[in-house]
């Protein structure tokens, strides 16, 4: 997983580096097109078109029945029930493509989220850096120190919260740049990246432990070493706007990918 994430990080850094100079919506349009081209073959081979066609016909016939027998309440409700049943069945037909698509989509979206989901720290702004210890660690405060580069300043000494086995510091951004903060615990050093910039860049709000799922969801940085006493290191980047718990960049990508989907679906023999 570590190697996989390292490859993806390089690939996304290269791709998004090319798009970095473009307005964000244009970059997302290009990404939407690429994602669409990746997904269409998946749909082609996993979506049961004939079954979906049957359910779609059920939806239409239900709608026609509501119109045709509109003076019979029983028939209206029966038509309504048919539409709902067929709609649920139709959505069910998307389950398999959805599950299959989620395999490539989850890492892709995780990577994109760390590029587009957070605002950068601005010079003069502050944030909190936390280092959380693993559950099997004793609750006593460890021996720690922190080393920040010149573009950052550490505003507070380490605060130990025994109940959460967590150390935290307040950091301030002094000038733009990509930095690495070093936390020394019992003689071992652990890094955490900090990005101070407004532009598009890979921002990692969390450096995870080595668990598979942690690495899958937080691929923006390499995981902590296996022998580390830490469970994770987090840094609060301001999150960008979201709607219905979904980040704004994601809505934009959805909207932009639909025209590409409609444009390319014929090439791949995909019918909705």
């Amino acid at each position: 997983m570590e190697t996989f994430n390292a490859l993806l990080r390089s690939a996304f850094d290269a791709l998004l580096g090319v798009l970095a100079g473009l307005p964000e919506w244009v970059a997302l349009a290009v990404l939407a097109m690429l994602v669409t081209l990746l997904i269409l073959p998946v749909i082609r081979w996993t979506f049961n078109h004939s079954l979906a066609e049957r359910f779609k016909r059920g939806i239409y016939s239900g709608l026609f029945e509501i119109r045709l027998f509109n003076d019979r309440l029983g028939a209206t409700f029966r038509g309504l029930f048919d539409v709902l049943r067929s709609t649920v069945a139709y959505m069910g037909a998307w389950l398999l493509p959805l599950v299959v698509m989620s395999i490539p989509m989850l890492p892709i979206f995780a990577h994109l989220h760390f590029h587009y989901g957070y605002s950068g720290l601005e010079p003069g702004s502050s944030t909190v850096l936390k280092a959380e210890f693993a559950a099997d660690r004793e609750a006593a405060k460890p021996e720690v120190s922190i080393v920040a580069p010149a573009g950052l300043s550490v505003d507070t000494p380490a605060l130990w919260i025994p109940a959460q086995r967590e150390l935290s510091w307040r950091l301030s951004a002094v000038e733009p740049g990509d930095y690495v903060v070093e936390i020394e615990i019992d003689g071992e050093r652990y890094d955490k990246t900090v990005v101070v910039s407004e532009g598009s860049a890979r921002r990692s709000p969390l450096r995870p432990a080595r668990g598979f799922l942690d690495q899958l969801i937080y691929p923006a940085e390499p995981p902590l070493p296996a022998a580390s006493p830490l469970a994770k290191i987090t840094l609060d980047y301001p999150e960008r706007s979201s709607f219905l718990f979904v980040p704004g960049w994601c809505w934009l990508l959805i909207a932009l990918s639909i025209p590409f989907f409609l444009l390319f679906k014929g090439w791949f023999g995909v019918e909705l």
Binding site: I39, I43, W94
Partner: peptide, 8 residues
């Protein structure tokens, strides 16, 4: 949320 343009 983003389950692919087709599914979406």
């Amino acid at each position: 949320a983003y389950i692919g343009p087709g599914a979406g």
